[in-house]
C-alpha cells in the first residue's frame, strides 16, 4: 500500500472520529470546532488526490465563511451548563442504515481505483509553503477564538 492510500485511510478515520467528537461533546462551541475540523479533513482528502479547486472551495468558502459563522454563533450563544444532547434511540436506525449501505457498497464488483499516486508529491513540490501557511492561519484563527471565549468566560 502506497503513502497516498495510507494517508487517505488515516484521514477517513480522523474525519469519522472528529464527527463523533462533535456529536458527543457537551459544549456546542467545541462541537462547532470539531465540525470545522471534520470539514477541513474532507477538504484535505481532495487536496491529497490532487483536486485542488474543490479543496479551495470547501476550505475557504464553506469552512471559511459558514463554518466560521457557526463557530461564532456557538460562542455567542454558549450554554453555561452544557449537557449531553444525544437521543440514543436514534442510533438504532442509523446503525441499520449504515449496515444496509455498507453491504450494498461492498456487494458490487470491485471497480478500479484511479486516484493518482503522484498527487501528493506534485502538490508538495509546488504548494508546500502555501499549504503550510494556510494550515497555520487556520490553526491561529481557531486558537484566537478559543482564547477569546475563555477570556470572556461566555
Amino acid at each position: 500500500m502506497d503513502t497516498v492510500s495510507l494517508a487517505l485511510i488515516a484521514m477517513c478515520c480522523f474525519a469519522v472520529l472528529t464527527a463523533f467528537a462533535a456529536l458527543f461533546t457537551k459544549d456546542t462551541f467545541y462541537s462547532a470546532l470539531f465540525m470545522s475540523v471534520t470539514l477541513l479533513t474532507i477538504a484535505g482528502m481532495y487536496a491529497l488526490n490532487n483536486i485542488q479547486p474543490v479543496f479551495v472551495l470547501i476550505a475557504f468558502i464553506f469552512v471559511g465563511a459558514i463554518g466560521a459563522v457557526t463557530v461564532a454563533l456557538a460562542a455567542m450563544y454558549r450554554d453555561t451548563r452544557p449537557k449531553l444532547q444525544i437521543d440514543f434511540i436514534w442510533f438504532l436506525p442509523a446503525i441499520i442504515t449504515f449496515a444496509i449501505v455498507f453491504n450494498s457498497i461492498f456487494g458490487f464488483e470491485s471497480a478500479p481505483s484511479v486516484f493518482s499516486s503522484s498527487a501528493v508529491s506534485a502538490f508538495v513540490e509546488e504548494y508546500a509553503v502555501l499549504a503550510l501557511f494556510f494550515f497555520a492561519l487556520a490553526i491561529l484563527l481557531m486558537l484566537a477564538v478559543v482564547k477569546f471565549v475563555r477570556r470572556e468566560g461566555v
Binding site: C12, V16, W90, A94, T97, F98
Partner: peptide, 13 residues
C-alpha cells in the same frame, strides 16, 4: 463508507 458514516452521525445529531 466514510461519507455514509459522517452522514449518519449528522443525522443522529
Amino acid at each position: 463508507v466514510t461519507s455514509i458514516a459522517i452522514l449518519l452521525i449528522g443525522y443522529v445529531m
